[in-house]
Design a protein around this nucleic acid. Structure first.
Lengths: 334, 334
DNA sequence: CTGAAAGCGCTAACAG
DNA sequence: CTGTTAGCGCTTTCAG
């Protein structure tokens, strides 16, 4: 079957491609009859406009790129990111954009790829911001938004500070005073969380003990055990450990079990993210749920706005997290 | 900064766009000096070829579409699919293709979207094959591959039958004879698994009792409890239940705990998929791991092959699953 | 309200 | 080894 073009439609209707184009794009004034005639012909002929041609003519691709380039290589296999991406995608599609992954290929930089494809915007879903290629694209004129990274002018993040303050409030209300906080790599996000931790302690009259903050990492096979053991063996005798994410938290259960400790009884554990399984494990995990739905939507809106206005104002959107109360935190008052 | 085109490069080198095009695409014979001159100019000018123009001229988009349209709306948030997609993506990118999600938009059909974008191939990662739009695209001339659905001429699936036979062998070796198999919706995949179950029983001299096969669903909030309770309350007194996926299996732990039963002791549970967390829950889940890495790669290769040859032979690729031995199955012989 | 004409940036015969 | 000449299919002034 030969491809039907705008000319075929035009011929069928005894007019030119100009008219067809106008009708299809709702531009200019065309008589009602002509419009109907054209729409009919389009349907009859099964005409489908070629985006490639349209792109070339308008210099718009209707394409948004997503960068996946985290050091851990977990990217969309991390439930958090896949959920945000999903919500972002839906919102973008509602606005007529398609989502394409920005490939990381040998000698071609991200920026080059983006320009080549004519991407109208880019989402850094998970990126290593120490990477030159990432930074180049971020600082280029291509509109872009970052998730969970405030180093970018445009970003969407969970309100980590407030969330942790709330969490400490809760822990304090349960009688916890020896709280270990696992602090991850240098990043604004981690920093904010730590700030929240300190502020939360102060707010609740708990003196800050630097030994209670221990360096750690996001989930990777084996880290949880190291983190947990160090916390328990450092002589600070914590009653609760705040892990940096749910996977690590759930893996911590295992490490604790190995030591003969019962989570939620002998020791309390808190996670971060709110992945599905946090509800199903035993004991169910107390964690800070990130509002992935809102985050994705907000990122999309922010990006759409940038694309439309062409401006790149400084805009950090902060979405509230929500404590999900499981049974991994013991109430010491009872 | 104005966009630099192939003509700018040509002018810079005192030749025509043809020559530049040939050099950049490695076609025809061009003198070494000219080549060098052109490459230098490209670098100096920062020339980036426009894919839109290229697409229009060659009628190739270098784009592969991915369809996400499952009834449960879990799509990439399901670890299984995100892993397969990731592997598929990497393989495709290695071959110069980019991955774009096929949007589901109001009045435009999937096929139309695919044609409009000039997609060279499509992967049905998770799709509802009772949907007309899905079937239309599947049966169109657009090369396409399905994951876990043998109704398509081109598919990649885990060898469910063999895997389940192996599993039954294992369960039998552990002394289990009253095995409940949760059977999911009508589908070739489910059917094959069931076949494997029956064959496995026979192989191990366990008479088949139809009551042992119970209809169920893939993961959705609440189904696990229903399935588990029904299995335990139907008077067949199973020693092990084979759940259709890991999420459901892990959620089953909860339902069993509610009834005061200990998984791996009072009752055994098996999952399917091999998600990360299956190792970290307690007891660690015995499950059939799907080789997501291989599946994604195989799907990509199959599709690439179809694109190249233009043929659509019947090809069902079956990837072996692997039993992951956890502690959720009790050895009754001990 | 409709059309003519030019152009988006690249590729691909076919010559030479 | 390099250039000429047409397009690919759509949009967009500018006329009429």
């Amino acid at each position: 079957m030969k491809k039907v073009t705008i000319y075929d439609v035009a011929k069928e209707c005894g007019c030119t491609s100009t008219t067809v184009s106008k009708v299809l794009n709702g531009k200019g004034y065309i008589s009602a009859e002509k419009k109907k005639e054209i729409f009919d012909a389009v349907a009859r002929l099964g005409y489908i406009p070629s985006t490639a041609a349209k792109n070339l003519a308008t210099n718009k691709s209707q394409l948004i790129g997503v960068v996946l380039h985290d050091t851990l290589e977990r990217n969309i296999t991390n439930e958090l990111f896949s959920k945000v991406l999903n919500s972002f995608r839906v919102e973008m599609e509602l606005n007529g954009y398609d989502i394409v992954f920005l490939a990381r290929k040998g000698n071609v930089s991200y920026l080059q790829k983006a320009v080549a494809r004519g991407l109208e915007g880019v989402l850094f879903l998970c990126a290593d911001y120490s990477n030159e290629g990432i930074l180049e694209l971020m600082n280029s004129p291509v509109p872009n938004v970052s998730l969970d990274f405030e180093g970018n002018d445009q970003s969407v993040t969970t309100n980590g500070k407030e969330s942790i303050i709330e969490l400490v409030d809760y822990l304090a209300s349960c009688g916890h005073r020896r709280i270990v906080f696992i602090d991850t790599m240098e990043s604004e996000v981690a920093h904010k969380r730590l700030e929240g931790f300190k502020e939360g302690l102060q707010k609740n009259g708990i003196p800050f003990d630097p030994r209670m903050v221990q360096k750690g990492e996001y989930f990777r096979n084996g880290v949880a055990e190291v983190e947990v053991n160090r916390a328990l063996d450092s002589g600070i005798d914590p009653t609760v450990i705040i892990m940096p994410d749910d996977y690590t938290a759930i893996d911590a259960y295992r490490a604790l079990r190995k030591r003969g400790l019962k989570v939620g009884e002998d020791i309390s554990i808190v996670g971060f993210d709110g992945i599905d399984l946090s509800k199903y494990v035993h004991p169910s995990l107390t964690t800070i749920g990130q509002n992935t739905e809102e985050m994705g939507k907000a990122a999309a809106k922010l990006l759409l706005d940038n694309i439309k206005t062409g401006k790149k104002e400084l805009r950090h959107i902060s979405i509230n997290g929500e404590i999900i109360y499981g049974s991994s935190v013991r109430n010491l008052n009872k």
